[in-house]
Design a binder for these strands. Structure first.
Length: 485
RNA sequence: GGCUCCAUCGUCUAAUGGUUAGGACACGGGCUUUUCAAGCCUGUAACGGGGGUUCGACUCCCCCUGGAGUCACCA
């Protein structure tokens, strides 16, 4: 049974790399009929950000990725928990961790440490100066049980460290294969802090076991801490989950994506007008490609085709131009109604207005992101001033432009209102007229288009007519004729 | 610096010993066309280097080089 989990710390934004890991978790769980759970790793009291959990849930909801277990955001804004392995907040599981830490101390596999942060700092400085590996020097390991108890009784704060055994630790990464660490490289890391909270190593290992997690997917930056998790599993006598370290998402400087080199939060991508479909397609195929010659995938296809063993092991730089291209693709696939819905929050014009909706629909092939629409549809909402000279087709003159506009004006004035219902009918009617009257496309269509759009570059005149409607179209053509005088 | 991971066009990637090294984004050219997009066709562009193994290496092994990650009472 596949059970995956996303275990973010609620410190604010949802990192794009976290989103990718979550996506892979989700694909893996869905394709096998397993579960994908969300667990909140809020064990660092100093880094907690109020509202971060609600925010995180909102982001995943916006992406359409819903966990099967864990905190759920209700319609009324409250957060409830679903699933039988709860609580899904680590801060609510403190007793569990303490109990486990105690178990290891009793077994002699972990020990209390009374060293101050100052001493530890100095120790590390000294080690660094001597070019040694920085790791705890085991000063407190020599404390007897009674000594330790006395100091604790005396109110001295202490942490619990694991006693890393001799030997080496090997695990088979589902993406990278066997990885071995010599235990001498592994630090006697802290598993329980002096404030009674566990560190990541203990909390995650215990929870993954208690929540029956089968696959642990996480970023590559966790590889070097994996021996700690493995050692802990061994100490508890547990079978370790399958680990898979997904490649890092890199900035343009080829370093771990940071705010300096690119947008790191999913929210930023939404704010920049990317559609969730594009985001899922783009991020979901970063480091993983199910097909040699296909780029566009629905989430269903990705779920079906996802294969952990085919995930790349090298980091990936975000190709933003490709994201734009994908976004354009998904924008083009939207119906006029869907487009109006998606444009909410990005366009200041009234989205219930048919003119606005049609303008969005027509302009969607000329924009990359939802944020581009405001500017793109402006010429439809109000005709901007333009120079009369641009109304003239390159092979003609002002008198010619004026004459052609006059004839089209006549045609459109008499034309049935219904023709304005579709672009195709408008095009057919006008082209038929041009042919019938022995006119030229360029001499007619160029001035018409400019008259309607007020621009040298724009959609076809038929599309603009469709957007503007008969009345406004006639008004703009009349205005153009006046301007040409 | 120690440890670990990684290495195909500028970027994302396909290839799992035998291909003219394929696709996509971007870029160039062309077609279409009333303009701009879109669309269609097309071009430039890659196996980091050196050793092996093999009849044969992008594919397997080793070394080098280069890049990255990590070395907290953060995750």
């Amino acid at each position: 049974m596949v059970r995956t989990r996303l275990a973010p710390s609620p410190t604010g934004k949802v990192h794009i790399g976290n989103f990718r890991t979550a996506l892979f978790d989700y694909f893996l769980a869905r394709q096998s009929g397993g579960q994908f759970l969300l667990r909140i790793e809020d064990t660092d009291q100093e880094r907690l950000v109020p509202g971060a959990i609600e925010y995180l849930l909102r982001m995943f909801k916006a992406l359409g990725i819903t966990p099967d277990e864990g905190p759920v955001l209700q319609e009324d804004g409250t957060i409830t928990e679903v699933g039988s392995c709860g609580p899904y907040y680590q801060s609510a599981r403190l007793d569990i961790y303490k109990q486990h830490a105690k178990e290891l101390v009793e077994k002699g596999l972990a020990y209390p440490c009374f060293c101050t942060v100052e001493r530890l700092d100095e120790m590390r400085k000294a080690q660094t100066a001597l070019k040694q590996t920085t790791k705890y020097d085991r000063k407190c390991l020599s404390l007897t049980k009674t000594e330790a108890e006395e100091r604790m009784m005396g109110g001295e704060g202490c942490v619990i460290r694991i006693k890393v055994p001799e030997g080496s630790t090997t695990f088979c990464d589902a993406i990278r294969g066997d990885i071995t660490f010599d235990n001498s490289e592994v630090d006697d890391c802290i598993i329980l802090k002096s404030d009674g909270f566990p560190t990541y190593y203990l909390a995650a290992t215990v929870d993954d076991q208690l929540m029956s997690i089968s696959h642990v997917l996480r970023g590559e930056e966790w590889i070097s801490s994996t021996p700690k998790s493995l050692l802990l599993c061994k100490m508890f006598g547990w079978k370790a989950p399958i680990f898979a370290h997904v490649p890092l998402l890199l900035g343009s400087d080829k370093k771990k994506l940071s705010k300096r080199t690119g947008d790191t939060a999913v929210e930023e991508y939404f704010n920049h007008g990317y559609l969730k479909e594009a985001l899922i397609n783009f991020v979901g195929t970063l480091g993983f490609n199910p097909s040699a010659d296909q780029e566009i995938f629905t989430i269903e296809e990705l779920i079906e085709k996802f294969d952990l063993s085919k995930v790349n092991s090298a980091g990936a730089i975000l190709n933003m131009e490709k994201l734009d291209w994908m976004n354009r693709h998904y924008l083009m696939a939207l119906s006029i109604e869907q487009l109006a819905e998606r444009a909410q929050g990005f366009v200041s014009a009234d989205l219930t207005n048919i003119l606005v909706q049609r303008a969005l629909f027509v302009e969607r092939s000329r924009v990359s992101r939802l944020t581009d629409f405001d500017v793109a549809i402006a010429p439809y909402l109000a005709l901007l001033p333009y120079d009369a000279s641009i109304l003239v087709w390159k092979k003609a003159d002002a008198a010619d432009a004026s004459a052609h506009l006059q004839r089209i004006l006549t045609l459109l004035t008499d034309i049935d209102e219904n023709i304005f219902g579709t672009v195709d009918l408008l095009e057919a009617a006008i082209k038929e007229y041009i042919t019938r009257e022995g006119m030229q496309n360029g001499n007619t269509l160029w001035p018409l288009r400019v008259a309607l759009s007020g621009q040298e570059k724009s959609a076809t005149p038929f599309e603009v007519l469709w957007v503007l409607g008969k009345e406004e179209s006639l008004r703009r053509i009349e205005h153009a004729i006046a301007v040409l005088q």
